[in-house]
Design a protein around this nucleic acid. Structure first.
Lengths: 342, 342
DNA sequence: TCATTAAACCGTAACGTTTCGCGATTGCGC
DNA sequence: GCGCAATCGCGAAACGTTACGGTTTAATGA
C-alpha cells in the first residue's frame, strides 16, 4: 500500500509553490536562518507533506562542498585499520559527513590512483595512511587545496602541508623492551613489519634505545621481519625459537602476534616460563588468552577520532591554520606473559 | 616550485573558450561522442593544458547519478566483512564507482539512519548486509527506486524487491557435520552466532539435518551461542569441553573459531586426538595452525564480486529485470583437525 | 499616527554539466 | 563542381541549490 510517490523527488521549488514563499526564504530557513513563526510552520508542514529532503548534489554544486571525506588505506582487512576507520566514521557521520573508502592493497600506484579518484569525486578532505611515504601521492589533493590528514605514518616530503596523527612508536617499544629488561631479560628478540616502513623503523628504534640505555645491543639475528601477516609472525617466531637462546620477545602488530602465539603453542614452549612475550594491539585477544598477554595497546580509537576531528576543524573552522601534529602514547598493558627472571 | 595553479579548477567553459568550440561539443566528446579529428586534438590539448577534470558533482546534478554506491554493514572490524568489501570496491572502482561505507554497529536503529543518510547523499545503489532482517530499513531506498543488493542474510519482507547474494549455509554446515559423522563422531557440539540471525539459524539447521539423516539428534546442551566474538567462542568452547562428552565440534565463524582454539590449547586438550574440530572462514589462519584446521571456507571474495556485479547490472543495464538471487557454495577444506574414530 | 529601523522576504543570477533540436559542415558519388 | 545525406556543432534551457542586494513587512517609540 504505497503512497503514490511522485516519480521525481520534491524540490525546494515545490515547497515554495506549496507555501507561497520564495525560494530564497526556504533555502535560508533550511540553513538555519530565521523566518516568521507561521512561515516556519508552513514550511515544516510542506516538507512533511512532500517528503522533501534537500538534494545534496545540487547543494554541493553551489557550495562546492560534498560533505564527504576520502579515506585511503593500505588494506581493509586489518583490525587496526578498521577500528581506526570506525572511529573516524563515527565522528564524521555525526557531523553529516560520509566517508569514501579506498583500499590500495599496499600498492603505491594504486594509492596514487585512489587519491586522484577521490579528489575527482569531490571529497572535501582526505585522510591517508600512506604507503608512499614520500607523500607524493597527495599531490592532487594539494592542487585543489584540500585538507589532508595523514595517520600512523609520517610522510617525508611536504610534511608541513598536512595535519598528522601519530603514535609515539619509539616510546611504545622502548617501554615494552624496558619492561622485559627490568625483569631481567637480556636476550630479547623482536619481530617487526617491514623494512622502510616508518612505524616499523620507529618500533625497532625504540627497542634498540631501551637496550642501549643499558649498554646492550640488539644483534641482527634477533630482528625479524614478518611482513605484518599471521603467516609471517608464525614463521619468524619459529625461527627465533629455534635459535633457542631467547628469553623474551616483542612482536609488533596484531596479526604477527597471533601467528607468533600459534608458533609458541605449537612448539610446546611454555609462556612465560620458557619465553616471555609482549604482543601488540587488540586488547580483546589478550583478554582471552591464558596466560593473559602483556601487550602494547595503541590508542586506536583515539587515532581515528583525532584524525576526524582535525579534518573537520580544517573544513569548518580554521582552514588556514598551521599544520598540526598530534602524537598519542601507547599503553603497556601488563598481563602475565612476562616472567621475572632476575 | 608549483605552477601558478588558478584558484578555481578549469571547467568545460574554459575548454570551450580555449578551443573555440561550443560547450555541447566538448561535453559530447567527453562522453564518448564523435568530433572531427582536429577538434579532438584541440580538446585533448586544452584538457592537458588546463588540467581539466570533469566536475562530477555538476555532472551528477544533471544526470541524477553520483557514481557512488552505499554499503551498510553491521560492523567493520570483521575479516569476513572487510574481505567482502574489498572485493566489491575492486569491481566498483574499476567501473568508476566509489563506495560510501557505513558501519551500523549491529544496531537496527543506526542501520535505518545509515540507509537514510546514504540515500540522502545521493548514492545510486545500496548494498546491505542487514541487521534488521525484515528489510524495513531499506524503505528510503525503495522510495527513490534505488537498486538494492542484500548479502549474506536474507530479508523476510519484500524479498522480491532486492537482488541477493547468499551462501548456502545449510549445505555448508551439513557437509561439515556429515564429515564428522562419517569419521565416526556422534557426540558433536556446535557454536553458532546468535539466535534470530538468519545465517546462524541456517548453519544450525544444516548441522541438525546432517544428524537427522542418520537418525541422531542435536541436544540443546550441545548448541552454544557465542555472539560472533573471540571471547564468546572461547567461553562457549570451554563450557562444551567441560561437559567432557564431545568428540567433535563445529564453530561457525572466524572470531569464535579463534577463541575456541585458544580455549582448546589452554585446557591442554589435544586436537584431533581428544577433540575433532571444524572451524569457519579464513584460510590463512588454518594454514598457520598445526594440526592444519579443517574449515568451512566461504567464497568471501565471490560474495563481494557478485554483489558488486549485480548492482552494476541494475545501474547500467537492465534496471527493470526481476530480482536475482545468487547462492554460492562454501567449500569444506580438509585439514588434520578431524580424527577418524571409527 | 507616523517616522524609523531592523528583520523577513524575494527575484535573479550563478554553480558546471548534459540534452535537445536545429542549423552548419563535410565528404561522397556522380 | 554539385547535390545530398550524414555527421558534427551550437545555443539555450535545464538540474536543485545558495548568495547577493534590494524591497517589503512588522515592530517600536514619540
Amino acid at each position: 500500500m504505497r503512497k503514490g510517490a511522485p516519480d521525481t523527488a520534491a524540490t525546494i521549488k515545490d515547497i515554495s509553490r506549496c507555501t507561497g514563499l520564495g525560494l530564497a526564504t526556504i533555502s535560508k530557513y533550511l540553513n538555519g536562518g530565521n523566518v516568521r513563526p507561521k512561515n516556519k510552520l508552513a514550511i515544516d508542514q510542506a516538507i512533511a507533506d512532500l517528503h522533501y529532503t534537500a538534494n545534496e548534489i545540487a547543494r554541493g554544486l553551489k557550495t562546492r562542498r560534498s560533505r564527504t571525506v576520502g579515506i585511503v588505506i593500505p588494506e581493509l582487512s586489518n583490525v587496526f585499520i578498521t577500528t581506526v576507520i570506525t572511529a573516524m566514521e563515527d565522528v564524521l557521520r555525526r557531523r553529516g559527513y560520509a566517508i569514501l573508502v579506498c583500499d590500495c592493497r599496499m600498492d603505491a600506484d594504486l594509492e596514487r590512483q585512489a587519491v586522484r579518484f577521490l579528489v575527482n569525486k569531490g571529497v572535501d578532505g582526505l585522510i591517508s595512511m600512506p604507503v608512499d611515504q614520500t607523500g607524493d601521492h597527495l599531490q592532487p589533493a594539494w592542487e585543489k587545496r584540500l585538507p589532508v590528514v595523514v595517520i600512523d605514518r609520517m610522510i617525508s616530503k611536504h610534511a608541513d602541508r598536512v595535519d598528522a596523527v601519530m603514535v609515539d612508536n619509539v616510546r611504545a617499544t622502548q617501554s615494552a623492551a624496558e619492561h622485559l629488561l627490568s625483569r631481567g631479560h637480556r636476550a630479547i628478540g623482536i619481530i617487526v613489519g617491514a623494512r622502510d616502513i616508518f612505524t616499523s623503523e620507529q618500533r625497532l628504534l625504540g627497542c634498540r634505545q631501551a637496550m642501549q640505555a643499558r649498554g646492550l645491543t640488539l644483534p641482527a639475528a634477533r630482528i625479524r621481519y614478518g611482513g605484518y601477516t599471521v603467516q609471517g609472525g608464525y614463521e619468524r617466531m619459529k625461527r627465533l625459537l629455534a635459535a633457542g637462546d631467547l628469553t623474551g620477545v616483542l612482536v609488533t602488530n596484531y596479526d604477527m602476534t597471533l601467528g607468533a602465539m600459534i608458533a609458541i603453542n605449537e612448539m610446546g614452549v611454555k609462556m612465560p616460563q620458557d619465553i616471555s612475550f609482549i604482543g601488540f594491539d587488540n586488547l580483546q585477544l589478550s583478554k582471552v588468552v591464558r596466560p593473559r598477554l602483556t601487550i602494547v595497546d595503541q590508542p586506536v580509537q583515539q587515532i581515528g577520532m583525532q584524525a576526524a576531528t582535525l579534518v573537520l576543524a580544517r573544513l569548518e573552522e580554521d582552514a588556514g591554520a598551521p599544520a598540526r601534529q598530534v602524537t598519542l602514547q601507547a599503553d603497556l598493558q601488563l598481563g602475565e606473559s612476562v616472567a621475572d627472571i632476575r
